[in-house]
Structures are given as C-alpha cells and as structure tokens.
Amino acid sequence: MIFHDTFSRYRRMIAAVFIIGISAGPAIAEAPASSSSLQGTFLVAAPGSQGPFQQTAVLVIGHDDDGAAGVVVNRATDRTLADILADPPSNKTADYNIFSGGPLRPRALSVLQRTEPDADVSGMRTVTPAMSYSINSESIDAVLEQAPAANQVRFFAGYTAWDADQLEREISSGAWLITTAEAADIFETEPDTLWARLMERITGRSGPAMQEEGGDL
C-alpha cells in the first residue's frame, strides 16, 4: 500500500467530501464505482494479508473521487492522553487510551465520538448517524471538556489515506473486504477481537478457517 503524506488535502477532504451513498449489504466483492462512497464502512484486511495492515479494521472517515481516508480502530497502544497532553482541558485524560490510527502523521491526534443522531457535533464530521470524527484540536478540546465515558470516545494517533482510485484498485485485488460499521463494533468490542469478529460476519467462518493465503497491504 503506497501512501502520500498529504495532510492538508486530507483535512480538506474530511471537511468537505461529497457523499453519494453506499451499499446496504454486509460486504461487497468488487471495487465500488467512482460515484460510490464507502464512508462509514469498515475495510477489513483480507485473511493471510501481511504487512502493516495485517488483521486490521479501518473505519472509512471520508471517500470521494479524490481519494479516501480512515483510521485503524483495533490497534490500542499502551499510552493514554495523559502521556501526551501537557495542559488538557479535563482531568480524565488518563482514562483515554490512544489507538494507532495509521502510518501517516503518527503524532497527529484525532477523535471519534459515539453520538446520538440529533446531537450537536459542530466542528466534527458525521461519519455515520452514530459516530462523529475530527482531527481539529479545538474539536478535540471540546470533546475533552465534555469528559465522556471512556467507552464513548476513541482517540487516534495517525491515520491512513489513499489517492484517487487507489483504494478501488486494492479492493479489486482482494486486499480488503468491506462491511458496514456499527458504533457497537468500535465502542463495545475488545479491539483485539474485532478483526476476527468482522471476518466471521463477512465470511461465516472463524478460527483457523480464516487463515488463508493473502496479499501484502
């Protein structure tokens, strides 16, 4: 998987990606048409895949004709916000683990919050009716001031992104499987088990049956 460290373009896309719609089915076997957005779905690394995205689940934050961006949601680190924020707006930072969101800008902090469909999430991007995301420091501070429960918010260091048509090519090659993303998948499932649970959802198989030949990611 080839990445380009285009942080400013990523932020513009997250702020203004044009959404056409996604398939309602649990998975799709071929690359989406250029007019179809995968925002709000999981990219699940194919069984047997090797490389930095082995057994990962990526939540697609934005996807349009210019490319796609997302965060890996199942790689928790042993760090918390208390380890990296010198003057946080909340004293609960030690409650919030940091997840490794991807190889791009590994020090860039972002937040994913579980939200009600009609909640006021100004300054954040609505990824699904139940989840909102931001990489903006002011939005992150606003979330911290709310001091949400640790099982209602996820903080990420880094992200992943694809250039135009790159993700579609990777899907066509079999590198990723696709399924809809539910808030419960992220906020109510142990990160270490998420990949296996999603694979079982998609394929109906579990355990050693999933460990097939795969490609590099």
Rank of each mutant, 00 (worst) to 15 (best):
G67N: 11
D141S: 12
F99A: 15
P106Q: 11
R125E: 00
R114P: 02
A119R: 09
T128A: 08
L112A: 10
A68C: 10
D83H: 11
N97W: 03
R125W: 01
I84Q: 00
V153K: 08
R154I: 03
P106V: 14
A149Q: 12
V111P: 00
P117R: 02
R107I: 11
A82H: 08
G67Y: 11
Y96C: 04
A150P: 04
T128Q: 08
F155C: 04
A108H: 13
F155Q: 02
A68S: 13
P103R: 13
A147F: 04
T115H: 05
R107M: 08
I84M: 06
N136Q: 11
V127T: 01
N151M: 10
Y133M: 02
E138I: 06
T126H: 09
D83K: 09
M131E: 10
V143Y: 02
A69D: 13
A142C: 02
D95A: 14
D87T: 08
K92A: 13
A130W: 05
L85I: 07
F156K: 02
V143E: 01
A119F: 06
A150N: 10
E116G: 06
R79N: 08
I140E: 02
E145S: 15
S137T: 12
A94T: 08
R125C: 00
A130H: 11
S110E: 10
T93D: 01
M124T: 04
S100I: 06
S132T: 09
A82E: 09
D141I: 07
A130V: 03
R154N: 11
T115K: 12
Y133I: 03
P89E: 09
S132I: 04
N91S: 15
A142M: 04
A86Y: 01
A119Y: 07
V153T: 05
R79L: 14
A142F: 01
L81A: 12
I84L: 01
G67W: 07
L144D: 01
A82W: 03
A150D: 05
A76D: 09
T77D: 13
R107Q: 11
Q146I: 04
R114C: 06
Q146L: 09
M124E: 00
S122L: 09
F99W: 07
N136C: 03
T77R: 12
T77W: 15
A147I: 05
A76Q: 13
S139M: 04
T115Q: 10
S122D: 10
Q152E: 13
Y96A: 07
A130M: 06
P88C: 12
A86W: 03
S139D: 02
A108W: 13
A119H: 03
P89M: 10
D66R: 08
Q152N: 13
V153S: 03
Q146G: 05
E138T: 08
L109P: 01
